[in-house]
C-alpha cells in the first residue's frame, strides 16, 4: 500500500558532540505538499533540514538518534549508504552555489555521476524548463553559471536538483540572499514543483511561509537550548489559530 507520507521522523534528535541541537522531533511530511519549518534563529531549523538528507554527516561530531523513515526504511540504518539518501532527497542551499562550470554542465554533472543513461540534452532542457529558467539561458548553455544573476543561479541550483529526480527537495532559506522579485519567482516555482515533488523549506520569512506552504512546523528551543517542533499543523491553522501561545507570539511578531 502506498504511504501518503513522503518522510517521517520518529523521536529524531541531532547532536553536535555533547550538545543536543534538535530534540525528539516526530513529524510526518506529506507527499507533494510544501512543508515550511519556521522558528527563531538558532532553534535548529537548518540542523533538522540537513538531517533529512544526511548532510550533517560532514559536520565533525554531529550524529543523530531516533528514526528518519523514507517509505518505512530508516535512513539512519546501518545498511543505508548516505550517497543514496542524497540522490533521493535533493537539497537547495541558502546561498546559490552553482558549480564554477557551464550552465549545461551544472545540470549534467549530477546526472552523469549518478549513472544517468538517457539523453543528456533532453534532461538538461527538461530540468531547466521545470525550474522556469530555460527561456533565459537556452542560448547560452555553454556559458559560465557564474555569469547568471543571483536569482537565476538559485533556479539553476533547483534545476540541478530536479535533474537527479529526487523524491523530496529540501530548501534552506532559498530566497534569503535574493531580491523580492527573484524571491517571488522562487515561490511560484515551488507551487509548480509540488505537483511532482515533496518540498520542505526552512524560512525565517513569515509571509513566505504563510503564502507558499501547506503545512508549517514551528520550532523553538527549550531551557537547555535544544530545539524542538512545538507545533505542526496546516499552515492556515498555524497562522490564524495556533494552539501554542509561543507560536501565536512568534507568527504575530510579538516574540522576544
Amino acid at each position: 500500500m502506498e504511504n501518503h507520507y513522503a518522510i517521517e521522523t520518529n523521536e529524531l534528535s541531532i547532536h553536535y558532540g555533547n550538545f543536543t541541537a534538535v530534540k525528539d522531533v516526530s513529524m510526518k511530511v506529506e507527499r507533494q505538499k510544501i512543508t515550511a519549518i519556521i522558528g527563531p534563529s538558532g532553534c535548529g531549523k537548518s540542523t533538522l533540514l540537513r538531517a533529512f538528507n544526511r548532510m550533517n554527516d560532514f559536520v565533525p561530531g554531529c550524529h543523530a538518534s531516533g528514526e528518519l523513515l523514507l517509505q518505512g526504511q530508516n535512513l539512519y540504518g546501518k545498511e543505508i549508504d548516505p550517497v543514496e539518501v542524497r540522490r533521493k532527497i535533493g537539497m537547495v542551499f541558502q546561498k546559490p552555489n552553482p558549480f564554477p562550470k557551464s550552465i549545461y554542465e551544472n545540470i549534467a554533472w549530477g546526472a552523469r555521476i549518478n549513472g544517468f543513461k538517457g539523453k543528456m540534452d533532453e534532461l538538461v532542457e527538461q530540468s531547466l524548463r521545470s525550474a522556469a529558467l530555460w527561456d533565459e539561458v537556452k542560448d547560452k548553455l555553454q556559458e559560465s553559471a557564474y555569469a547568471l544573476s543571483g536569482g537565476q543561479q538559485q533556479r539553476l541550483c533547483i534545476a540541478r536538483t530536479i535533474a537527479i529526480q529526487p523524491e523530496i527537495i529540501l530548501m534552506d532559506e532559498p530566497a534569503s540572499a535574493l531580491d523580492p522579485i527573484s524571491t517571488l519567482r522562487i515561490e511560484e516555482l515551488m507551487q509548480e514543483l509540488k505537483k511532482n515533488y515533496t518540498i520542505i523549506i526552512v524560512t525565517h520569512n513569515m509571509q513566505q511561509a504563510a503564502r507558499a506552504s501547506d503545512y508549517t512546523a514551528m520550532m523553538m528551543i527549550d531551557e537547555r537550548r535544544a530545539g524542538g517542533v512545538i507545533e505542526f499543523d496546516g499552515t492556515t491553522r498555524i497562522f490564524t489559530n495556533p494552539k501554542d501561545k509561543r507560536t501565536e507570539d512568534y507568527v504575530t511578531g510579538r516574540f522576544g
Binding site: 550517497v83 540522490r87 552555489n97 558549480f99 564554477p100 549530477g110 555521476i113 549518478n114 540541478r160
Partner: peptide, 18 residues
C-alpha cells in the same frame, strides 16, 4: 575551495572521491 562547492556536489549525490 569554498565549503559550499563541496556541499553542492554532495547534495547531488556525489561520493567524496567524485
Amino acid at each position: 575551495v569554498p565549503e559550499s562547492l563541496r556541499q553542492a556536489a554532495f547534495g547531488v549525490g556525489a561520493t567524496r572521491w567524485q
